[in-house]
Amino acid sequence: MREDLAARLRTFAAERDWERFHTPKNLAMALTGEAGELAAEFQWLTPEQSADVMSDPEAGRRVRAEMADVYLYLTRLADVLGVDLVQAAHEKLDEGERRYDAETYRGTARKAPPLP
């Protein structure tokens, strides 16, 4: 599935001769912009409203579209850089499990010291 999406994005860019614009820098900047647009959808909502945002058809449509934009740019960036996002995410979660043992950090948001 992930590979299919990356391949489809690769084809999409190639058919439009956009590969030259899809540099890591440009893709990271576009990703940041789209993440900002996603955050803007939640900016003035209460915590309760933000948790219920998908129940509003129009707001839900906008949030879904912004999430898709973020996912597409991240997928394209990973493809251009040759990064397996699922593997990278598992590695990051493994690190989090080492840094934040459940017994010590349950119910707290404090930061762990850096790993040696």
Rank of each mutant, 00 (worst) to 15 (best):
R64M: 12
Q87F: 03
A39D: 02
M67S: 14
A109L: 15
E3C: 00
L5T: 13
L81E: 13
T11K: 09
A14R: 10
G107V: 09
A59Y: 05
R8A: 15
A102P: 08
R76I: 00
M29S: 10
F12H: 11
R61Q: 12
R106A: 15
E97M: 09
E97T: 01
D101T: 09
D56P: 08
E19V: 05
D17L: 02
R2K: 11
G107A: 12
K111L: 15
F12R: 04
R98C: 01
V70L: 00
A89V: 05
K92N: 05
L77F: 07
Y71I: 07
G96I: 00
M54Q: 11
G107L: 08
G82L: 07
E97K: 08
A35F: 05
A7I: 02
P57A: 13
L27V: 03
R2N: 14
D17S: 12
Y71M: 11
R99Q: 13
D4C: 05
K111S: 15
R76T: 02
S50I: 04
R8S: 11
S50M: 12
L115V: 07
A59E: 14
V86C: 09
G60A: 08
R16M: 04
R99C: 08
A7D: 14
D17I: 01
D79G: 10
L38R: 03
E66L: 09
R110E: 15
T11L: 12
G33S: 06
K25N: 00
K25I: 00
T75H: 05
G36Y: 00
F42H: 14
A89N: 10
R98K: 14
Y105Q: 10
E91Q: 14
P113N: 08
P113G: 13
P47M: 05
Y71R: 06
D4L: 12
L77G: 02
M29A: 12
Q43V: 04
E91R: 04
A6Y: 01
M29N: 11
A28S: 13
R98V: 11
V80N: 04
R10H: 13
V86Y: 09
M1F: 09
G33L: 03
R16S: 04
E48C: 02
A109R: 10
R106Y: 15
L115K: 13
L38Q: 06
R20D: 10
Y71W: 07
L31T: 04
R8P: 00
R99W: 02
D17K: 12
T108V: 15
